[in-house]
Design a protein around this nucleic acid. Structure first.
Length: 515
RNA sequence: GGGCGCGUAGCUCAAUGGUAGAGCAGUGGCCUUUUAAGCCAUUGGUUAAGGGUUCGAGCCCCUUCGCGCUCACCA
């Protein structure tokens, strides 16, 4: 390791501590309770009027040190909270006071034992009888100080540079408690969704991430290789085709929460890997799925936030069911004046779009044009939770026909905060229709279009054994967490978002020659 | 991939083309109830990297790297 000047000073303390017989990285600690437990134990004793002093051994990271000559105050933080350590020469003696001043720096892990009290200014504190180094920090944490103004924590000199925050997320988390809160919320969201689905008799399953044939969405895959099998494999872009095979196998209600990988551009709502929740529900259809979706999100809000109303990007978003429902065709008429039913092929649709002065890439399939209209003119305007339903069949190759409307399928997408949040349909279970759709997709997309859905023969075989009628659903967990934490970029809700690799000299030497 | 912007001390930020600075952190002092503790003193820079213009470049030009915004892409 190479040390900066600041780090060398701390490293030298490690050496001198060891010379004095003190291990700066002891193997064990003797903590009797968490900081939060200590604080509430003291408050309860106070309320009960107990006079017996409470002893405790607490540990955490040193976040502030205030030396006052013969006494010292320190703020110590563990995963549950923060407390003040009160060090005084009366209890510790001159030698120990000197040891504290010489050995300890901000960021070190300290264990302190003593009794709980309130200081003159009323702060709950641990008066130390003894203390010990638990782990020496060599690198100084980014300087950050908290000030409490009217009960609100005001932060000073926080680590703010996004690049450093994402590349060194550990430092970001260590000094920015609001960032830790995002990921507690995130864990709560996943847990609550799981509770909800378990409570509705869904079975959680795990399906392959490495897939010989990718499918279930229109996206470019990552390709990897199995050496021994001499076989290329794809990282999954969705769980859909495997989960529906399980319905064929007799599991009527299944769900999976996991990672999808899409080899596409990054943006404020796209990360190359993202967390998806999909469920499939036998004997249900997209209308039932719509209702379950509202209930699930409301349940998650209740459990995680205790409210169904959240502020997102300056707007109050209300997740209380029922969500607004709008038909895609009508929504497009309202927003653009174009009735897609009157333009049954890409040529006529392109023509009217040109007449309206819309910008788009010419020569696309009709489905892609409609999708363009949708994401350009509809997605951004749906701030309140909205289900848009009944999609053209040519952009929904896995969804079932809407009875009596041959060009349409039973599909809906949920939009919130101007983002697509979830996608669901009544699943296509007719193997012959499914085969025809795969073939159609193959024709309509350019041969070199990597989003083209490859024909999945085994999936068709599964369908041919018979799959019960069912509704299927997928939701982007990252985006849901964005909405519930009022974060406006997906990187804020992913612990280690993908960043470009930094150029390194050693790396440059090892790099394979350019082709 | 295109366009625009940014990169200065460990952190947050200053600096008309003319001696690179402040606060916090650090270091040395003083201080027995502080809490962004305070007071005195003080260290710290290849201004992302490389090249160019200029008497002189953090600032102007070029290249590269990284980040951000945006467009494209993204059922």
């Amino acid at each position: 390791m190479e040390f900066s000047d600041l780090e060398k000073l701390r490293y030298n303390k490690i050496l001198s501590m060891r010379e004095n017989g003190i291990e700066p990285y002891p193997t064990r600690s003797e903590v009797t309770m968490t900081i939060a437990e200590a604080v509430s134990a003291f408050e309860e004793a106070e309320k009960a009027g107990t006079t017996e002093p409470i002893s405790a051994s607490l540990a955490g990271r040193l976040r502030a040190i205030r030396l006052m000559g013969k006494l010292a105050f320190a703020h110590v933080e563990d995963g549950t909270g923060r407390i003040q350590f009160f060090l005084r020469v009366n209890e510790l003696g001159e030698a120990e006071m000197t040891r504290f001043k010489e050995d300890f720096d901000l960021g070190d892990y300290i264990q302190g034992s003593g009794t709980l009290t309130r200081t003159r200014t009323g702060e709950i504190s641990l008066i130390l009888n003894e203390f010990r180094m638990l782990a020496k920090a060599i690198s100084p944490l980014p300087a950050a100080k908290d000030e409490v103004v009217d009960g609100q924590v005001v932060r000073h000199s926080v680590l703010a540079d996004p690049e450093t925050r994402y590349r060194q997320r550990y430092a970001d988390l260590a000094v920015n408690s609001d960032v830790r809160k995002i990921f507690r919320t995130r864990a709560g969201v996943v847990k609550a969704a799981r509770e909800f689905l378990d409570g509705h008799d869904f079975l959680e399953v795990e399906t392959p991430i490495l897939q010989p044939i990718y499918g279930g969405a229109a996206a470019k895959p990552f390709i990897t290789h199995h050496n021994q099998l001499k076989q290329d494999l794809y990282l999954r872009i969705s769980f859909e085709l495997y989960l529906k095979r399980l319905l064929v196998g007799g599991f009527d209600r299944v769900y999976e929460i996991g990672r999808d990988f899409r080899n596409e551009g990054v943006s404020y709502k796209h990360n190359p890997e993202f967390t998806q929740l999909e469920f499939y529900w036998a004997y249900a259809d997209y209308l039932k799925v719509m209702e379950l979706t509202e209930q699930m999100i409301a349940y998650v809000c209740d459990r995680v936030l205790g409210t169904r109303k959240v502020m997102y990007n300056g707007n109050e978003v209300d997740f209380t069911p029922p969500w607004r429902r709008v038909e895609l065709r009508q929504a497009l008429i309202d927003a653009t004046g174009i009735d897609i039913h009157q333009y049954p092929d890409s040529e006529s649709l392109e023509k009217v779009m040109l007449e309206k002065g819309m910008k788009f890439k010419p020569g696309q399939a009709r489905g892609k044009l409609i999708d363009h209209l949708l994401s350009e003119y509809l997605e951004p305007i749906f701030i309140q939770p909205t289900f848009m339903y009944d999609y053209p069949r040519d952009i929904s190759p896995l969804a079932k026909m809407k009875p009596g409307e041959p060009g349409m399928v039973e599909r809906f997408e949920g939009f919130v905060g101007g983002m697509e949040l979830c996608n669901a349909f009544t699943e296509l279970n007719d193997p012959l229709d499914q085969e025809a759709r795969f073939l159609e997709m193959g024709r309509e997309y350019e041969a070199e279009d990597e989003e083209r859905q490859p024909m999945d023969e085994d999936y068709l075989r599964a369908m041919s054994y018979g799959m019960p009628p069912c509704g299927g659903f997928g939701i982007g967990i990252d985006r849901l967490v964005m909405l519930l934490t009022d974060r406006h970029t997906i990187r804020e809700v992913i612990l280690f978002p993908h960043l470009r690799e930094q150029e390194r000299e050693s790396k440059a030497e090892n790099r394979e020659p350019e082709k």
